[in-house]
Computed example of a mutant assay.
Amino acid sequence: MAVTILFLGPLRDMAGEAAREVPGPLDWDGLLAVVGEEVAGQLQEARVNVACRGKVLADKTALDAQDGDEIALLPPVSGG
């Protein structure tokens, strides 16, 4: 099985794809390694959130995704 990473909003443009499957399990360092340098840089910003199994992580560096899990990379929301 694999872990599915969903790239949302402008992160999708940076990644060049909407989703990517990678081997699990996946921790924070592993996530940074597989998303590419530009997306990894954005993920390290406090305003970008990470959700795993449908829940936004309070501490994204504590990511512990297992086979079959889905990770969503959530850029900051702007409103008007």
Score class of each variant (00 low, 15 high):
72 A>L: 06
15 A>Q: 00
1 M>C: 01
55 K>N: 12
38 E>G: 09
1 M>D: 08
16 G>S: 10
45 E>T: 11
23 P>L: 05
68 G>F: 11
29 D>Y: 07
60 K>D: 10
76 P>D: 07
13 D>N: 12
75 P>G: 06
73 L>F: 10
74 L>S: 02
22 V>G: 08
78 S>L: 02
31 L>D: 01
14 M>C: 01
7 F>N: 01
49 N>G: 06
54 G>H: 10
30 G>N: 11
55 K>Y: 07
10 P>R: 09
74 L>R: 00
38 E>L: 09
77 V>W: 03
34 V>N: 07
61 T>W: 10
7 F>G: 04
1 M>N: 12
62 A>Q: 09
16 G>L: 10
79 G>I: 01
48 V>N: 05
66 Q>C: 02
27 D>P: 06
17 E>K: 10
6 L>C: 00
20 R>D: 03
34 V>C: 06
27 D>A: 11
71 I>Q: 03
61 T>E: 13
5 I>E: 05
49 N>A: 13
71 I>E: 06
4 T>M: 10
8 L>R: 09
74 L>H: 01
80 G>K: 04
63 L>V: 02
11 L>D: 02
5 I>R: 02
31 L>W: 00
4 T>P: 04
2 A>R: 05
51 A>K: 08
57 L>P: 08
30 G>S: 15
59 D>P: 07
49 N>K: 09
68 G>W: 13
31 L>Q: 03
36 G>M: 13
19 A>Y: 04
42 Q>C: 10
8 L>A: 09
6 L>V: 04
80 G>P: 06
78 S>G: 08
35 V>I: 11
10 P>H: 04
80 G>S: 05
55 K>C: 12
65 A>N: 02
27 D>I: 00
43 L>K: 07
28 W>I: 14
36 G>Y: 15
4 T>L: 14
52 C>D: 06
6 L>S: 08
18 A>Q: 00
28 W>P: 15
42 Q>Y: 12
61 T>H: 15
68 G>C: 13
16 G>N: 09
31 L>Y: 07
80 G>Y: 08
53 R>N: 12
70 E>R: 05
30 G>Y: 10
74 L>M: 00
52 C>N: 12
23 P>W: 08
14 M>G: 07
12 R>H: 05
46 A>V: 14
51 A>M: 13
39 V>C: 00
12 R>S: 07
76 P>A: 03
31 L>V: 08
53 R>M: 00
7 F>H: 02
55 K>D: 15
79 G>N: 07
36 G>R: 12
8 L>H: 03
58 A>R: 13
25 P>W: 06
29 D>C: 04
8 L>Q: 01
54 G>I: 09
20 R>C: 03
70 E>D: 04
24 G>L: 06
75 P>C: 05
28 W>D: 14
62 A>R: 05
41 G>L: 12
5 I>C: 06
22 V>K: 07
47 R>Y: 11
16 G>V: 11
2 A>T: 04
21 E>D: 13
53 R>Y: 01
28 W>A: 14
61 T>R: 15
62 A>N: 00
59 D>E: 15
17 E>Q: 12
24 G>M: 01
50 V>P: 08
51 A>D: 11
4 T>W: 10
60 K>S: 10
47 R>P: 00
12 R>D: 01
34 V>R: 06
58 A>F: 12
63 L>Q: 07
31 L>C: 01
65 A>Y: 06
32 L>K: 13
54 G>L: 14
